[in-house]
Design a binder for these strands. Structure first.
Length: 230
DNA sequence: CCCTGATTCGC
DNA sequence: GCGAATCAGG
């Protein structure tokens, strides 16, 4: 495989979006991870936090090596000392993890003076915040009390008029404003340009006339999403 | 072991 | 210019 303009564009785009060299190599096909890295360096693309290279800059305390992966799986619960027993089937699916702060009776007790053989000090905490049983235990240490009544959560007042993800349908503009994860992230919400997912204004941003490649100016690197020229 | 990116160096 | 080999950290 050779590095055609299209493939280089794709490499730049994906690299700029934070994809790993392996992902880019898979996406492009016909090249190895090393080829991608080598090409990226030759192109002078911005280097990534390398696991090998130490961060010399002491003024930048946040190296943030966590790769922004799409759909990161839920973090595995911390297991201490004991393998987790099979999770028991819960009678009814709990819609919410019920974030009410539950005092942990024994788990966080750092008191080392409790060497009772039948009282294990460590207990693993499951994803929902429940405490896992130890192998010998017959009953859940905290019997789950299902909520009797479900009250729909009200959105915060300052977002009440903003178009959230749940408000989206095919009649309103899905143009995102802000960035996911930010507290005021929402969508445009104006009536769509019929047949398009965006309103007329945002269609003007989303769809632009393609110019001949030779006249194309490489756009400056965007914070999110590459130029996606094709 | 797996993964990652950086670097080297023969082609 | 290209990329396999290698290095080295997570």
């Amino acid at each position: 495989m050779s590095w055609t303009d299209e493939r280089i564009d794709k490499l730049k785009s994906l690299w700029g979006q934070g994809h790993t060299a392996s992902q880019i190599a898979d996406e492009l096909g016909g090249v190895s991870r090393n080829a991608v890295i080598g090409k990226a360096h030759r192109l002078g693309l911005e280097s990534r936090p390398s696991p090998v290279k130490g961060n010399e800059d002491a003024g930048t305390p946040a190296p943030a090596p966590a790769a922004p992966r799409e759909a990161a799986p839920a973090p595995a619960p911390k297991i201490e000392k004991v393998e987790a027993p099979k999770p028991r089937p819960v009678a009814a699916a709990e819609p919410r993890p019920a974030p009410a702060p539950r005092p942990e009776p024994v788990a966080a007790a750092p008191a080392p003076a409790e060497p009772k053989p039948d009282q294990p000090v460590y207990r693993s905490i499951g994803p929902g915040g429940f405490q896992r049983q130890q192998p010998g235990e017959q009953q859940s240490p905290i019997p789950p009390a299902p909520p009797r009544r479900l009250v729909p959560a009200k959105p915060a007042a300052e977002f009440a008029d903003k178009t959230s993800l749940l408000d989206l349908n095919d009649r309103i503009c899905k143009w995102p404003l802000g960035h996911p994860g930010e507290p005021d992230f929402h969508f445009c919400g104006d009536p769509v340009n019929p047949g398009f997912p965006y309103c007329v204004q945002h269609c003007g941003q989303a769809y632009q006339a393609q110019m001949p490649r030779r006249d194309r100016r490489p756009p400056p690197p965007l914070p999110y999403g590459g130029p996606r020229v094709r």
